[in-house]
Amino acid sequence: MPRPELPVTGQAPPERADAARNRRRILDAAARLLAEQGPEAVTMNAVAHAADMGVGTVYRRFGDVNRLLLALLDDGERRFQQAFLSGPPPLGPDAPPAERLRAFLHALADRVLDQLAILATAEAAAPCARYSSGVYLTLHTHVAVLLRQARPDADATVLAHLLLAPFVPSLLGHLTADRGLTVAQLKAGIDDLLAL
């Protein structure tokens, strides 16, 4: 059976090698600051210092903090999409659909939790915008394709929305921060949901 083709979030135009290295250094520095200190710590000056380069280079490359944070999200999403579209099984192709779906939902939980602060900020700014974004549409299409393969009799379109619903950043933030659930508990809950 041919593999379905899904769009990958906006492909970046080719870059010079030095520009690509600087972009990577800046994104890695921003990611470290975000993970260690939260989104408030991600300023253009702090990122430049953490990347060991001039602040002018960071401004020329990204313009402002919002665009830098969006680039950081896009970078993570591009890596995630490559993993589930062409990475090794069970997340990537060549695994049974039910195994791929489980691996995908576990990886999605990790992804959302890893970037919870920035995703929650984006969600708060435009709560319903996520459902028309290219990122959500790609995730939804992928889940629907796997569901059609695993359960041809089910309404894969509706089930895909329902399976993705628990991955809203505010809910995962509530479950981990307010309710004290661990990632292992969340993944066990995902497995129980898939077993229904």
Rank of each mutant, 00 (worst) to 15 (best):
168 V>G: 14
52 D>N: 14
103 A>W: 12
126 A>K: 04
68 L>S: 03
163 L>V: 04
177 A>F: 10
130 R>G: 05
176 T>S: 08
111 R>S: 12
19 A>L: 12
188 A>C: 05
142 H>R: 06
64 D>S: 05
7 P>T: 01
186 L>F: 03
162 L>N: 09
137 L>V: 00
170 S>K: 11
176 T>R: 13
92 G>R: 04
64 D>R: 02
57 T>Q: 09
141 T>N: 03
192 D>C: 13
133 S>F: 06
167 F>H: 02
100 R>P: 07
141 T>A: 14
73 L>Y: 06
157 T>Y: 11
88 P>E: 15
78 R>K: 10
193 L>A: 13
178 D>I: 00
132 S>H: 07
112 V>C: 05
62 F>M: 00
166 P>D: 10
22 N>M: 13
26 I>S: 02
22 N>I: 08
14 P>S: 01
182 T>F: 11
60 R>Q: 14
102 R>C: 09
7 P>N: 02
173 G>D: 07
122 A>Y: 09
117 A>P: 15
131 Y>G: 02
126 A>T: 10
35 A>R: 13
93 P>L: 05
139 L>R: 10
104 F>R: 00
17 A>T: 11
189 G>A: 15
83 A>G: 04
32 R>Q: 15
110 D>I: 00
189 G>Y: 09
132 S>R: 08
35 A>Q: 12
113 L>F: 02
146 L>P: 13
195 A>H: 11
86 S>E: 14
161 H>M: 04
184 A>L: 11
54 G>V: 04
175 L>D: 14
90 P>I: 00
70 L>M: 12
192 D>M: 11
188 A>W: 11
143 V>R: 01
114 D>C: 01
13 P>V: 03
80 F>S: 00
11 Q>V: 10
162 L>M: 14
100 R>S: 04
117 A>R: 03
84 F>H: 08
168 V>E: 15
105 L>Q: 02
67 R>P: 10
15 E>V: 03
190 I>G: 05
140 H>K: 08
44 M>R: 00
22 N>R: 15
153 D>A: 14
25 R>A: 13
170 S>A: 15
87 G>Q: 03
179 R>M: 15
46 A>P: 11
10 G>L: 12
178 D>R: 08
30 A>Q: 05
144 A>T: 01
76 G>C: 08
79 R>N: 08
185 Q>H: 09
68 L>P: 04
148 R>A: 07
152 P>I: 08
63 G>L: 05
36 E>V: 13
183 V>K: 05
33 L>A: 03
11 Q>W: 07
6 L>A: 01
107 A>W: 13
154 A>M: 10
181 L>K: 06
179 R>W: 11
147 L>I: 09
119 L>Q: 15
15 E>A: 12
154 A>N: 06
189 G>V: 05
102 R>F: 08
182 T>D: 10
176 T>Y: 07
63 G>F: 09
50 A>K: 07
88 P>A: 14
180 G>L: 07
72 L>T: 04
172 L>K: 03
154 A>T: 13
195 A>K: 07
171 L>S: 13
59 Y>C: 01
106 H>Y: 12
137 L>M: 06
115 Q>F: 11
2 P>C: 01
173 G>Q: 05
188 A>S: 10
194 L>A: 03
3 R>M: 11
63 G>Y: 07
39 P>H: 05
43 T>S: 15
20 A>C: 06
18 D>A: 12
55 V>M: 07
